[in-house]
């Protein structure tokens, strides 16, 4: 199984006028790594999900995500946005953005990994560590450490 996240899926200076732009930037990283075959199709799936209910969570987190036929391997792209991007959370914009891409027919072991990542995001110490990590490698290592292998 390939890694869920690698350093080239991380953008520590994520910019975008709104959540769709920011999401598109992260989706571009996934496409460049060959994990998403059709960026527009994948973004449409993410947007459809986002429209059901914004994915922003209090505490500065946005987790746009979708299960999509255009995804080849379960993947996570991560961006840190110093200026904040609105993901519809009640307490304001998000500075930690996780784009979760799951293949349509993903096996349940992948889903379990994504589930444990989601659980991690609740913990303040994990969020703090993500905000303070010096570079992309450190972020990738931090996330991998916190996931079941």
């Amino acid at each position: 199984m390939s890694d869920l996240i690698t350093a080239d899926l991380i953008d520590l200076d994520l910019r975008g006028a709104d959540r769709h732009e920011a999401t598109a930037v992260l989706a571009g990283l996934l496409a460049a790594a060959g994990r998403v075959t059709d960026v527009d199709g994948f973004l449409a799936d993410v947007r459809a999900r986002e429209e059901q209910m914004p994915t922003g969570i209090e505490g500065g987190i946005g987790i746009p995500h979708a299960r999509s036929a255009h995804v080849t391997a379960p993947s996570l792209a991560f961006g840190r946005a110093a200026q904040g991007i609105d993901f519809g959370a009640e307490d304001g914009p998000a500075d930690l953005v996780f784009l979760i891409a799951a293949p349509e027919g993903g096996g349940s072991e992948h889903m379990t990994i994504l589930a444990s990542l989601a659980r991690k995001l609740i913990h303040a110490d994990f969020k703090t560590a993500l905000r303070e990590a010096p570079d992309a490698e450190a972020v990738a290592a931090l996330i991998k450490q916190n996931l079941p292998s």
Binding site: R49, Q52, M53, T55, I57, I63, H65, A66, R67, I100, A102, M111, L114, A115, S116, A118, R119, K120, L121, I122, H123
Partner: peptide, 16 residues
């Protein structure tokens, strides 16, 4: 709706 993120975050938050 998707069952890959919020479901588990809420579970974790409620447990905590």
């Amino acid at each position: 709706p998707t069952g890959i993120a919020h479901t588990y975050m809420a579970a974790e938050a409620l447990e905590q």
